[in-house]
């Protein structure tokens, strides 16, 4: 018998975060953390019948809460998309996140897929990361060594790679409320209207100044998150810098094109083309800016 056929696989389902972290630490990365399994199982089904050893996070109370604070909402890593989409504080104050959660897979998927899984699976096409990037979210990781909180914008370091150490688990995501009057805009461009993987997606959060006497207003701060526009979920720092203090609505399209040319690195793949992704990313930003200019 070959080695693959004899290797035993284990299924751990701890009921406290401390136990989970202990397993994580002792396994030194040899155990795959799972929650909704909506992406991992697709891969497992396509390959060998042998499961890897898994650490099932579904029984950890520490990962299952949505806490509404004065400045931010903190969402446990194992909260599913359906709960996020239905949560009144998220729908009211972070509507882009409710929207991205509602566009993640199908309804059945949303009942299982977790926010933490969507982040830690680290797909550049994931639906919720662009929104978290635009909102300036922070992620909290824990290990037996302690816990730490990082800016999400720095979390993804390369294709399917993150700052998380092999002994760490994602515990929660903290999403700050945007400034009052900020315009938010989320658009997922999938291969069809539902149950689709994004070809390109944009989340934009645009704060503007009050209207001047001539009726124009300026961009105070604009933050973006893109999916399927590079090897990781991307922010657009050049674009954010280029737009600061720009007048609305007369934003020069060339300015957006130039900035995104350096911010994004889309590719041709099985779902779309680099040319389409680049062009549509520009179009989506222009649409977001047009919408921001119309905020009363």
């Amino acid at each position: 018998m070959n080695s693959a056929a004899t290797a035993a696989s284990e299924w751990y389902r701890p009921t406290s975060l401390a136990d989970a972290l202990a397993i994580r630490a002792s396994a030194r990365g040899a155990v795959v953390a799972i929650a909704g399994c909506t992406d991992l199982m697709v891969g497992w089904n396509a390959g060998s019948r042998r499961l890897p050893s898994v650490l099932d996070l579904s029984a950890l109370p520490e990962l299952g809460a949505i806490e509404v604070g004065p400045d931010a909402v903190t969402i446990g890593a194992a909260v599913c998309c359906a709960r996020i989409a239905a949560h009144p504080a998220i729908a009211g104050r972070l509507p882009m996140l409710a929207s991205s959660a509602r566009q993640t897979g199908s309804i059945a998927i949303q009942n299982r897929a977790t926010l933490g899984g969507n982040i830690m699976n680290a797909s550049p096409a994931a639906d919720n990361p662009p929104v978290l990037l635009a909102f300036g979210a922070r992620v909290t990781l824990a290990s037996v060594r302690g816990s730490r909180t990082l800016d999400y914008a720095a979390f993804h370091t390369g294709y399917k790679r993150t700052l998380a150490e092999p002994d760490e688990l994602l515990v929660s995501v903290t999403v700050p409320y945007p400034a009052p009057g900020a315009s938010s805009h989320y658009r997922k461009v999938g291969t069809r209207r539902a149950q689709a993987i994004s070809k390109v997606a944009l989340a934009a959060l645009i704060e503007t100044t009050d209207r001047a006497e001539d009726g124009t207003r300026r961009v105070r701060d604009a933050r973006f998150g893109f999916a399927s526009a590079g090897p990781v979920p991307l922010t657009a720092p050049s674009l954010s810098a280029a737009l600061r203090d720009s007048p609305l609505p007369a934003i020069d399209r060339l300015l957006v094109e130039r900035a995104l040319a350096s911010d994004l690195s889309p590719i041709d793949d099985i779902r779309s083309t680099a040319a389409y992704r680049r062009q549509v990313a520009v179009n989506l930003v222009m649409a977001a800016l047009a919408e921001a200019s119309q905020v009363p």
Partner: peptide, 8 residues
């Protein structure tokens, strides 16, 4: 929609 060129 000319923004995305999607045909519905």
């Amino acid at each position: 929609d000319l923004t995305t060129c999607e045909v519905a």
